[in-house]
């Protein structure tokens, strides 16, 4: 009897939660739907989740000249892979020494990291530093170097390292191994879980960068994919405004501005959106790796 009552409750609960999940996902599907729609249908009836007429005009229009989007993809792939690798490497490189309890001055480094979490110089001094002194503007390094290290990740990795049994390092030291050797021969292979978590979090963060382009990049061949999409929002609006002012009615028909915009969003965000669910467990792991304490 009890079992039956629970199962009905389970079904109701399940339906509510699945509907909620649909509500979360549907906005993305709306963009997908619009991108495959016919521009005239949109003009008449507005955006629809399910296209009235399946139409690839928007994609054809966007991919007519794929050079720009491919360039943005190239730049983003380069700085995401390079940035993720360098971030993980340098995070481990500082996390290992400060995980050694007998390191002289490890507290100085820990406090240095803590203060940098609490206080920052702010946007303007950072902007002056990056542009006037380091000249990182209009280079791909702007995506990699200023965001290279995060105290959060360092503390996360240090906590993991310090939980590894001490005897491993001690035993290796007897054999005369240098600390650098111990670091990459023993510590790194043992730390795959935390490295994977930080790598995945950095990867997602880098892939989604756009602020750096907004602030530092004037050269359109070096903008990130997300910022490229952002400019598309503005550019197509511009083209549309010109059409609305009655520049020429013929182009208003030939430029599928609404559907093209959404097609661009799908081309930019689509591929990676299918990869992200596989990243989920690393994110969840990152949440539960607590113990940041200094």
């Amino acid at each position: 009897m009890i079992k039956k009552r629970i199962s009905i409750g389970q079904i109701v609960l399940g339906i509510i939660m699945v509907l909620l999940a649909c509500a979360v996902i549907i906005p993305f599907l709306l963009i997908l739907g619009v991108s495959f729609s016919n521009e005239q249908d949109i003009m008449l009836n507005g955006y629809k989740l399910i296209p009235e007429h399946f139409d690839l005009t928007a994609y054809k229009y966007v991919l007519q000249n794929p050079r720009d989007i491919l360039q943005a993809y190239k730049i983003t792939i380069i700085f995401t892979i390079m940035g993720t690798f360098l971030t993980v490497f340098f995070t481990a490189l500082i996390a290992y020494p400060i995980s050694r309890r007998d390191m002289v001055g490890r507290n100085i480094i820990s406090y240095m990291l803590l203060i940098s979490m609490l206080f920052s110089g702010g946007l303007a001094p950072t902007y002056i530093l990056n542009t006037r002194f380091l000249h990182l503007n209009n280079t791909i390094w702007i995506y990699i170097i200023p965001s290279l290290l995060s105290p959060w990740y360092i503390f996360m990795m240090r906590t993991f390292f310090s939980q590894l049994p001490d005897s491993i390092v001690e035993a290796a030291t007897i054999d005369g191994a240098s600390q650098i050797r111990i670091f990459y021969k023993i510590i790194i292979p043992l730390s795959k879980p935390v490295i994977a978590t930080i790598a995945v979090m950095t990867f997602v963060g880098k892939w989604n960068l756009w602020y750096e382009s907004l602030l530092y990049i004037d050269d359109y061949t070096k903008v990130s994919l997300q910022y490229f999409l952002q400019r598309m929002m503005k550019n197509i609006a511009l083209i549309k405004e010109m059409n609305d002012m009655g520049m020429s009615m013929s182009t208003a028909i030939t430029i599928p501005s609404e559907t093209a915009r959404m097609a661009m969003a799908i081309l930019v965000a689509g591929p990676i959106l299918f990869v992200f669910p596989f990243f989920q467990k690393y994110f969840v792991k990152g949440l539960t790796v607590g113990g940041v304490k200094g």
Binding site: P125, L129, I180
Partner: peptide, 27 residues
């Protein structure tokens, strides 16, 4: 031993001085 540890930490520490502490003086 200490030298090795500090040698590893040197570059990241330098990064924090440049990207975290220099802007603070920029105030």
């Amino acid at each position: 031993y200490q030298g090795e540890l500090w040698g590893m930490a040197a570059l990241p520490v330098l990064w924090f001085i440049i990207f975290s502490y220099l802007p603070m003086f920029g105030i």
